[in-house]
Write a protein that binds this DNA or RNA. Structure first.
Length: 898
RNA sequence: GUGGGGGUCGCCAAGCCUGGUCAAAGGCGCAGGACUUAAGAUCCUGUCCCUUAGUGGGUUCGUGGGUUCAAAUCCCACCCCCCACACCA
């Protein structure tokens, strides 16, 4: 009869909820541990990716709880966002209804998995009591000058009908819907994340427990580069322009300048050109060019001569200014000096437009000729054609040229970042209204804090344009300062704003006076362990860091970083592809649970791969895991019966000691594995412990004390992974408490660390249980077989001598300790049957056989004919001693006892 | 192109940092056996190759070198795969 793990799970979930055992303890005398998973966007049901994420987190939270920590482990919902709005339009329901229905569904699933969240701290970002604090934060940012409005070219997703932040444009496409992103000139709200670029970069170094790839991605995204800004006068216009370069050493190689099409200065530059019209057309083309076509043309450089010339600051030469599609307006100054000889892009451009190529760096060992160049020379060398700087090594020339430019006021050292300010306006409904007001008299003013929240109205029409603008109750308002007619900002906030501080709201989720209580935050913040997907490496994880730094500067929190330790879990794939509905390879957690129970799902998910790695879903393997759990469950339930049916003495034998040693060793080993998130290895160990238990239970001399100690520890060790089964067995064995609240078992080092002791004992009592040698000494099974062969042959011989029948012999062989040698045992047995006398003679005619019962280590060495060094590591940890022994016996394998 | 991660005995996956108990954990698969009228389930055993009753020998950790008494593990070169960013001056 198979146990119903689903039912068992339900039962305990109910009990836990009834007793409210996962409510966060407020006892501040304990060390705290804040364990957090990236909260889900409630767009439907939980998929395997979520389940994996939360299973990892839950197992960890449970483990930490057992280790005596005060654990904060909350759950909430990132419930504002476009899908809700789109679904609402599609099904003509209210986004709120749609969202809340989904939240209920997801919550139910989370509960069915047995996740040990403190549900009293649940949050949802679409609720007034949450988003009012978004608005409050926005106003604080505004006060500090960190929120501002700017007109400029922005990324616009035509399908989502809203603008996007740079971080949300992936390969020129919208991160959400995949449409090609267009450029639009709009006035939008920004947060000044660039002010924090340096700190965001520098503090990455302090994040020791973050995965390296994430840090590198952030570093690249921030993209710091140090270089020089160089000023150029423009011929005929009383204006200076600036370029940015990291290669000031190539300044004498400039043969043209290029300016980004979006650059406002282009208008002035083309003004007097006879090709003004054509230039304008070119600019428009560039700006409408899709990412696709730019890639398709293989990064072909296209440009247009403006008709204007700049004056080289050092040589006073006149150099043409081009508009070109390869210059990024947002980076540096939006104007680049063209040095075809030493930059591949410039080289291609110069070839295309027949611009001169001037070599200014000569390689030390080879010759290059300007006319023969087929690509730019990017290496180092000696400066030539560079006026007073000729002869310098190019690396050394950079600071010299910088000094000179600075002295002459022609340029200066500068640092630029790839990071841009964070565009947070969205022209959509389902989000936090930006609390700003346009007053005819006072201009752009913030809503007063006491008037918050600016409530998201419900009288809106969905369709084209921004729905908020259609609300009669929302748009028209009075200026909070002069009382005159005014209109509200109708843009809402990027939902990444919501998720940039939600981890703080869990700390005091009900507080109505502040987003969170400082006193509480001082205790709980930062998050000790954060778990989520790597896809947020430069989105959520960067924004949250930025937010935290701002709050730190405001004195609201005392940590500059939100997440101390980060784990990015791998994807769940099946049949070589990410689980997706279109591929039809989705495994529904719900269905799985009903069939095998949530513990099987948890067990498999943690077992099948290490958390960071991709998890390859295999139905077969889940079944294997299920079988193991069923076996474990049934065997432990049976132990009482087994104990009753046999009367073994109280005396602890070597096998008992062995059992106690492995369980005690496992306690400390698993502690380490759990702490390092190596659940897959932990489970391997647990399975072995299970197998050992099964084997032990088959003996006829098992001891109740040993079983008790073993099973209690085993259940505790497995409880973070399969909490329901552990809980059920725990109670079946007669405990009244919750195993979920038990402490991590204590490991008795005396019981583990007895290898040496065992060895002495081995010398004396090796006959008692020869099997144990293999396990203790860890000599491969094959080698120990030799001893065994003699041993069991002798027993078998006696057995047959007593007149046993064939069937008895077979069952003796298969059920004796030597059944692991089933095949050969049978073979020998059959031979015996045929002719006992004949076989017995050569085997048992010597006394040697019996000597094997009094083996010593020397005997093992000698009679096993093992040419081995047996080194007791304990007594000779001295390096030199070890080395000496090795040198003395070159090429000889060694066995080392830990 | 730049940056990151990988290639382990049918598949998945440990081990590599800290070189010797490594022919290399564990799971799955497969094979044989026990149990069964039978199938399934369960249990036992085996699963690189050759050989044996036990033993023994040979060849393995992407490829090729190197260091070492000793390399899956350390060093160098090369090949292949994945992922992220991508005209950042």
């Amino acid at each position: 009869m198979e146990p119903d793990f689903y039912k068992i799970a339900k039962k305990w979930q109910k009990e836990w909820e009834k007793e409210d055992i996962f409510k966060t303890r407020e006892d501040k005398t304990h060390k705290k541990f804040y364990c957090l998973e990236m909260f889900p966007y409630p767009s439907g049901y939980l998929h395997m990716g979520h389940v994996r994420n939360y299973t990892i987190g839950d197992a960890y939270a449970r483990y930490k709880r057992m280790k005596g920590f005060n654990v904060l482990y909350p759950m909430g919902y990132d419930s504002f966002g476009l899908p809700a709005e789109n679904a609402a339009i599609k099904n003509s329901v209210n986004p709120k209804e749609w969202t809340e229905k989904n939240i209920e569904g997801i919550k139910k699933q989370e509960k069915e998995m047995g996740f040990s969240y403190d549900w009293s701290r649940e949050i949802a970002t679409h609720k007034e009591e949450y988003y009012r604090w978004n608005q409050w934060f926005f106003l604080q940012f505004w006060k500090k000058g960190l929120a501002y409005q700017k007109e400029g070219f922005v990324n616009w997703c035509p399908s989502c009908r809203t603008v996007l932040a740079n971080e949300q444009v992936v390969n020129g496409k919208c991160w959400r819907c995949g449409s090609d992103v267009e450029k639009k000139n709009l006035k939008q709200w920004y947060l000044k994340i660039t002010d924090y670029a340096e700190r965001l970069l520098k503090d990455l170094d302090s994040l020791d427990d973050w995965p390296e790839p994430v840090k590198i991605m952030q570093k690249n995204w921030i993209g710091k580069s140090e270089g020089t800004k160089i000023k150029f006068r423009i011929k005929g216009i009383d204006k200076e322009i600036e370029t940015f370069t990291t290669r000031a050493d190539t300044i004498y190689g400039i043969t043209y300048l290029v300016i980004a099409p979006e650059h406002p200065l282009t208008t002035e530059l083309i003004q007097d050109s006879d090709k003004e019209e054509e230039a304008r057309r070119f600019i428009n083309e560039c700006m409408n060019e899709s990412y696709e076509s730019r890639i398709a043309e293989n990064k072909k450089k296209r440009g247009f001569f403006t008709g204007s010339y700049a004056i080289h600051p050092l040589t006073q030469e006149e150099i043409p200014i081009f508009i070109a599609n390869y210059v990024l307006f947002e980076y540096g100054t939006g104007i680049v000096m063209g040095v075809p000889a030493h930059d591949q892009r410039d080289f291609m451009f110069a070839k295309e437009y027949n611009l001169p190529i001037r070599l200014v760096i000569k390689p030390v060992s080879s010759e290059i000729n300007e006319e023969d160049m087929s690509e730019a020379y990017l290496g180092s060398g000696i400066l030539v054609n560079s006026g007073p700087f000729n002869g310098l090594k190019n690396e050394e020339a950079i600071p010299k040229i910088q000094d000179y430019l600075e002295k002459e006021g022609l340029g200066k050292r500068a640092t630029t970042y790839k990071l841009r300010d964070w565009l947070i306006s969205r022209q959509r409904y389902w989000g936090t209204p930006i609390p700003m007001i346009y007053c005819k008299k006072c201009g752009v003013v913030p809503e007063k804090e006491e008037n918050l929240p600016v409530v998201l109205p419900e009288d809106v029409e969905f369709g084209s344009g921004n729905p908020l603008a259609t609300s009669k109750t929302f748009v028209h308002t009075k200026c909070p300062y002069c009382g005159g007619d005014a209109i509200r900002e109708t843009d809402t906030m990027d939902t990444f704003f919501d998720s940039s501080w939600y981890f703080l709201r869990y700390i005091s989720p009900k507080n109505r006076e502040a987003p969170f209580e400082k006193k509480e935050a001082d205790y709980w913040f930062p998050v000790d362990q954060y778990i989520g997907g790597i896809e947020h490496a430069v989105l959520h994880l960067l924004y949250s860091r930025f937010f935290t730094k701002v709050l730190y500067d405001m004195g609201l929190v005392s940590s500059e970083e939100p997440f101390k330790r980060l784990l990015t879990q791998g994807m769940v794939v099946k049949d070589g592809a990410k689980m997706s509905k279109s591929l039809g390879n989705v495994v529904d957690p719900q269905e799985f649970n009903v069939k095998y129970g949530p513990d099987t799902l948890r067990f498999f998910i943690l077992f099948a791969a290490s958390p960071e790695n991709e998890l390859d879903w295999k139905n077969r393997e889940t079944e294997g895991n299920y079988k193991f759990l069923v076996r474990l469950y049934s065997r432990i339930l049976e132990t009482k019966k087994i104990l009753k049916n046999q009367k073994a003495g109280k005396e602890i034998n070597l096998y008992d000691k062995y059992m106690l040693s492995i369980i005690n060793r496992a306690i400390s080993e698993l502690d380490e594995l759990f702490n390092g998130f190596r659940f897959n290895l932990a489970i391997t160990k647990i399975m072995k412990l299970g197998e050992e238990l099964f084997n032990y239970l088959k003996r006829n001399d098992i001891k109740e004390d040993v079983i008790d100690e073993y099973v209690v520890a085993l259940l505790k060790l497995i409880s973070p992974i399969t909490p329901h089964i552990a809980e059920e067995l725990w109670h079946q064995l007669g405990h009244d408490s919750f195993i979920s609240l038990e402490n991590w078992p204590e490991s008795d080092s005396k019981k583990i660390d007895a290898t040496a002791e065992f060895l002495i004992e081995l010398n004396e009592k090796i006959s008692e249980d020869i099997m144990t040698i293999r396990k203790l000494v860890k000599i491969p099974a094959k080698r120990i077989k030799l001893i065994l062969a003699e041993d069991w042959k002798y027993e078998l011989y006696n057995f047959i001598k007593k007149g046993a029948k064939e069937k008895d012999i077979k069952s003796f062989v298969m059920n004796s300790e030597f059944k692991r040698y089933g095949k050969e045992a049978l073979f020998i047995a059959e031979e015996f049957m045929k002719n006992p006398q004949k076989i017995s003679e050569p085997i048992f005619n010597k006394d040697e056989e019996l000597e094997s019962y009094t083996l010593s280590i020397d005997y093992i060495k000698k009679d096993l004919k093992l040419d081995l060094d047996i080194i007791l590591k304990k007594n000779s940890t001295d390096e030199t001693e070890k080395v000496k022994q090795r040198k003395a016996n070159p090429g000889k394998p060694a066995i080392i006892f830990e």
